[in-house]
């Protein structure tokens, strides 16, 4: 895994903010995947990911366990996503009132929105494994290390996450088919 999150966090706290870039590199895809599923739009996911990282940077001093940076980051992302959703709702309400239009044009979806949405719907523990493995560039044993769990558990969780994802994706494509019919 190379340099630990903790090392970079300490560097940042010591007035070397440049090193935050390594944490951004490490977790940007994770955040984007996590947020795209929740927000349904790549642009908004990007905005939320930026906000999350900025908040994380300024909150580094409050992070008690630097080893759990990842979980902490997801927590911030969840709060940011909620705030954005609320804002978006308000905006839509206002727009609806202004234009009397019922339909808001669907925002442009990201490349594999279906997959991201399905990931967003996974239980927390499953999602973490998927995010780290495929978006964080971790191997399974590194995921195990990061989450402080035996490799066997991670493998099982991954297996279950696959099942859940397949089910969710299957339902979605069924629904789409029905709509098309």
């Amino acid at each position: 895994m190379g340099t630990t999150d903790k090392y970079y966090i300490e560097r940042c706290l010591d007035g070397q903010p440049d090193d935050f870039r390594y944490l951004i590199r490490r977790y940007q895809a994770v955040l984007l995947a996590h947020l795209a599923g929740k927000l349904g739009n790549r642009d908004r996911a990007e905005e939320a990911a930026q906000e999350t990282l900025v908040r994380a940077y300024f909150g580094l001093g409050k992070l008690k366990k630097p080893d759990s940076f990842f979980s902490w980051l997801l927590g911030i992302a969840n709060r940011v996503a909620k705030e954005q959703q609320r804002q978006e709702q308000r905006r839509r309400q206002q727009e609806n009132i202004r234009s009397f239009s019922k339909e808001i044009p669907t925002p442009e979806l990201s490349q594999d929105y279906g997959l991201e949405k399905a990931i967003g719907e996974l239980p927390d523990s499953h999602r973490k494994v998927i995010l780290l493995r495929y978006y964080g560039g971790y191997s399974c044993s590194q995921v195990a290390e990061q989450l402080d769990k035996p490799l066997g558990t991670v493998t099982k969780t991954l297996s279950r996450a696959y099942a859940a994802l397949r089910k969710s994706l299957q339902q979605k494509s069924d629904r789409n088919c029905e709509v098309q019919k």
């Binding site: 870039r21 951004i24 940007q28 990282l53 940077y57 495929y134 560039g137």
Partner: peptide, 16 residues
């Protein structure tokens, strides 16, 4: 594939 696409995002400079 999706992981690769997202990893190519240019968040770094914007966030910094």
């Amino acid at each position: 594939a999706n992981g690769k696409v997202l990893a190519e995002s240019k968040l770094e400079d914007k966030v910094l």
